[in-house]
Design a protein around this nucleic acid. Structure first.
Length: 644
DNA sequence: GTAGGGTTAG
């Protein structure tokens, strides 16, 4: 597809919009009808109210075919009018019209900075990050590409769509191209830190950068930072920022308070939380639903169940417990605190009060029952949830799936998988691992194998413990090739695997006679394999492995640091004697042995000499053997001397 | 009338 070209020169974007002649009277012309002062005061609103541009905007907003209306009114509308229309369709979430209008504006050279910024903002809301990147990427003019508000809207779109990694990559690129970031940029980027694993560290980098550019943190930046501290469990730091915010003369709002309170809840700092509540009230704020719910979390996580119950009663009385969330918080804490009976009571209480569950309370209870070993009860709840025609998300599906798997309810397991397919939810690691465990337990190894393969293909990290278990079971069940395939998936999708994995797979491959595969394992990991397994493999390979690989296998074995036994060489020599056309390989082996200080034992020696005629190389073989003997005697002496 | 953030549950 061809990239849309940019119709306008940069200067047009960068200069302030020219006021329309139809709106304002040029100042240099004296007014005939009224005194300039009076006119100036009344002119703008009045002309706007009666302006043909204004009615044109209204006409496009009301049109059934907005693009046709635009074309009809092309002569009247100016860029800022089109921007109003563009934003209108963004506000009413008509994404198709939004894009059409933007396209029309582009074709008619009616884009400015504001058009791009607004368009990107709404595309972000419509979750269409790809389109934003496409349109942004097609902007040719560098001064537009690095315009701060355009950059901010593009970055904001990526952050909102959960693409934190690409946000920071794009930001670095924008900086290289010449972007001068402002506080908007930093608050956008900081919000991208929220979901990052190392979000706090990244946030600190950004704050340093902000300071080094001479910018001052404002209340928004502090708010974002507090939320980052809370979500990454930096409680002390949250406290410091909250104080700094106050010291710099800002008044904390409800969000600042609830973030700090949330940070306290993770560490069960209930005393600090209570002081903070006092501070909040003293500052004239009234605790809202979120604040009180967060306080409930403080008490619940801290194990202060009496206070939590009391607070829940208060929430109920204030009408703040009409949704399941406060119940979820307390139910979860009770269950995790070993009070599963009380958790169940509260859950039933909640249902009796007619509080509707979207699945959170159910999944908390199902998981809690499962953890406590109450598997049938967990399954009963999963069914109850299903029967109330509930909607599912991935977590709820996983929770129910596990409940059904653990009670061997195959029919329900299949129903869940079908549902997953129907509502187009992609499985995650938890789903895959649950299924793999289940199929394995049910001895349906081909399904366990297929699931692992599927998981691997979809780019998920395999669970090593589980998969090596499946690998061993596949081996025991008579599927060594599949076992090897699982080994390969684990081996080549992960940086490191447990050392014993190689040994385990050898234990399957060697008895099954899959010696070429076993050789691959040995070759890449020879230093991690025990002498016993090496011996086992070597013995088998010399007896029945591919004769053309014998010498390579010898080298790999030797490379491991393991001294190859004479028995192994004896077996190799027997193989070669049976195949005289491989004499070149035999000679190579004997030469190589000499070089490595190995020698054949007397029975192999005799066998070789007896059969040397078969090879037509009687003289040569005798020479090599005597050389080998001399070399090995010398080595023996060297070793003896060094021991002495 | 271009662009910013943040609070609670599995």
């Amino acid at each position: 597809m061809e990239a849309p070209s940019l119709p306008l020169a940069a200067s047009r974007f960068l200069s302030p919009p020219v006021t329309a002649p139809s709106c304002t009277r040029p100042r240099s012309l004296p007014s005939i009808r009224a005194a300039p002062k009076a006119l100036k005061k009344r002119e703008a609103p009045q002309t706007l109210r009666t302006s043909p541009r204004r009615s044109a905007v209204a006409e496009v907003k009301a049109a059934t075919d907005p693009v046709a209306a635009l074309t009809r009114l092309e002569g009247v509308l100016q860029t800022q009018d089109c921007n109003i229309i563009l934003r209108h369709y963004g506000e009413i979430r008509r994404w198709d019209v939004l894009s059409k209008i933007f396209g029309w504006m582009q074709e008619h050279d009616m884009l400015n900075i504001a058009s791009y910024s607004s368009y990107f903002k709404y595309l972000g809301l419509s979750r269409n990050a790809a389109k934003v990147l496409q349109v942004y990427g097609a902007i040719q003019d560098n001064s537009i590409r690095v315009h701060v508000s355009i950059c901010n809207s593009v970055l904001g779109c990526l952050v909102k769509n959960g693409r934190s990694d690409s946000t920071f990559k794009l930001y670095d690129e924008m900086i290289r191209e010449g972007l001068s970031p402002d506080l908007f940029t930093y608050s956008t980027l900081l919000s991208g830190c929220m979901k990052l694993r190392q979000g706090y560290t990244k946030a600190m980098e950004l704050i340093n950068e902000l300071n080094s550019r001479g910018l001052q943190m404002d209340s928004v930046i502090y708010g974002t930072l507090l939320a980052i501290c809370a979500s990454h469990n930096y409680c002390d730091e949250a406290e410091v920022y909250f104080q700094k915010l106050k010291d710099e003369g800002y008044t904390p709002n409800m969000f600042h308070y609830s973030s700090l309170l949330n940070a306290y809840s993770e560490n069960s700092y209930h005393e600090k939380a209570e002081l903070l509540m006092k501070d909040l009230r003293a500052s004239g704020l009234t605790p809202n639903k979120v604040i009180l719910t967060t306080l409930l979390k403080v008490y619940s996580k801290g194990g202060l169940f009496d206070k939590a119950k009391e607070l829940l009663t208060e929430l109920e009385a204030s009408g703040f417990a009409q949704e399941e969330m406060p119940y979820c918080i307390l139910i979860d804490a009770l269950a995790k605190g070993g009070k599963i009976w009380e958790a169940t009571m509260l859950f039933n209480d909640m249902k009796e009060k007619g509080v509707k569950s979207d699945g959170y309370a159910f999944s908390i209870m199902i998981s809690a029952l499962h953890r406590g070993g109450y598997r049938e009860e967990a399954k009963k709840l999963a069914k109850e949830f299903e029967d109330q025609n509930a909607t599912y998300d991935l977590v709820m599906l996983n929770t129910s799936l596990r409940a059904y798997c653990n009670t061997n309810d195959t029919e329900s397991v299949m129903r869940m998988l079908k549902k997953m397919d129907e509502i187009n939810i992609s499985p995650d690691q938890i789903t895959f691992n649950t299924l793999i465990r289940y199929f394995c337990k049910e001895n349906v190894y081909h399904l366990a194998y297929k699931t692992i393969e599927d998981m691997h293909t979809k780019g998920h990290q395999l669970n090593e413990v589980l998969c090596s278990e499946v690998m061993v079971q596949l081996g025991e069940a008579g599927f060594p090739s599949e076992a090897f395939s699982v080994y390969c998936m684990m081996r080549y999708s992960k940086r490191t695997v447990c050392k014993s994995l190689h040994e385990k797979v050898l234990g399957i491959l060697v008895p099954a006679g899959l010696l070429k595969d076993a050789y691959i394992v040995i070759k890449d990991n020879s230093d991690l394999i025990s002498p016993r397994s090496l011996e086992n493999f070597a013995g088998q390979f010399m007896t029945s492995g591919n004769i053309n690989l014998i010498n390579d296998v010898m080298k790999a074995l030797n490379h491991s640091g393991w001294r190859i036994s004479q028995d192994i060489f004896g077996r190799a020599i027997q193989r070669y004697i049976q195949k005289p056309d491989k004499k070149q390989l035999l000679l190579c082996l004997l030469d190589w042995m000499t070089g490595q200080g190995y020698s054949v034992d007397s029975s192999s020696r005799n066998l070789l000499l007896k059969n040397a005629q078969l090879f037509g190389q009687k003289q040569l073989i005798a020479e090599i053997l005597s050389k080998q003997q001399a070399a090995s005697r010398a080595t023996g002496q060297r070793i003896k001397m060094s021991i002495d």
